[in-house]
């Protein structure tokens, strides 16, 4: 082998690397979801393998999900995701993470953020929160989340009140109790959601999660605007409006409401404001 061979090898390597890196990077970026979230061994295997690094492994699972979710939100356009989110996979990973480290708050926080509206897995989210409350017995966030889920999604007001009280006790602020008390009824739903989401936006420090909360908050604020207009219309005309368009024509809604999830607002027969997007990104339901 001559003296120049190593240099030649290095050069050939560098040239082909620079030629290949961008197709490779784009191939990696565009890999399908399941492949990107990656496969994680079952918890039965993972737990013994993690040895005394269970917390670390748990945290890296959460990190993986966060990165994945962040990537999705980052690529979102006009309220549409470029590809359906692998909510099941995310949920699976988070569940493994809490089995490894039941104290990891990120898991609960994150699970709460997407399991509810996006995945519609309220029961799963509540189970997870309940599991977490056994460990993080000092943390008011968990009962706060659980209270919200019970009130908003399950309409189980007594249970919600119980959780809100617990959150209030733990936080030492009776704000939650008051907040809850005010909205623990069907008519206060939108405001309940707005109050919850405002709090979440304020405390979120992960940009992707904050963004997802902001979008949802925006949607609910729009809904709230329609509600106000609806009530005003009823007061003026003595009868409730039938459609959202009616409100726009009456000049009560300006500008026209727009759903950041790309859906269209409509009024249910009961007069409740709804949207075709169901306050979630248009994704193929898994």
């Amino acid at each position: 082998m001559t003296k120049r061979a190593p240099l030649a090898l290095l050069m050939v390597g560098l040239v082909s690397y620079s030629l290949l890196i961008s197709p490779f990077a784009s191939y990696m970026r565009n890999k399908p979801i399941a492949e990107k979230l990656g496969y994680v061994p079952s918890i039965k295997v993972l737990k013994p393998l993690s040895a005394d690094h269970k917390e670390f492994v748990g945290a890296s699972l959460v990190l993986k999900v966060t990165m994945y979710f962040g990537g999705l939100i980052g690529k979102m356009q006009n309220g549409r995701l470029s590809e359906p989110a692998d909510l099941q996979g995310m949920s699976r990973l988070l569940h493994q993470a809490v089995r490894l480290d039941p104290y990891n708050m990120d898991c609960y926080y994150f699970a709460q953020s997407f399991l509810t509206w996006d995945a519609g897995q309220i029961e799963v989210a509540n189970e997870m929160l309940k599991y977490g409350m056994q460990y993080r017995s000092w943390d008011w966030y968990l009962p706060f989340f659980a209270g919200f889920n019970h009130a908003f999604f399950l309409k189980d007001y007594p249970k919600a009140a119980e959780y809100y009280r617990k959150a209030g006790d733990l936080s030492g602020m009776d704000l939650h109790i008051k907040l809850a008390g005010r909205y623990l009824q069907e008519s206060g739903q939108t405001e309940l959601a707005i109050g919850y989401l405002k709090g979440m936006v304020r405390t979120a420090n992960n940009p992707a999660i904050r963004k997802s909360y902001q979008i949802r908050l925006q949607a609910f604020q729009e809904a709230r605007r329609i509600e106000v207009a609806r009530d005003l219309f009823a007061a003026q005309h003595g009868a409730p409006p039938a459609t959202v368009e009616q409100l726009v024509h009456a000049g009560l809604l300006d500008p026209k409401p727009s759903d950041p999830y790309g859906g269209a607002f409509y009024l249910e027969a009961t007069g409740k404001v709804s949207t075709t997007s169901k306050f979630a990104f248009a994704t193929g339901k898994k």
Partner: peptide
């Protein structure tokens, strides 16, 4: 592409190491 990446990266490593 991955195979090509492997060859290129390994060449760089070996060339630099040599």
């Amino acid at each position: 592409i991955t195979l090509g990446y492997f060859l290129a990266y390994t060449s760089i490593l070996l060339g630099a190491a040599a």
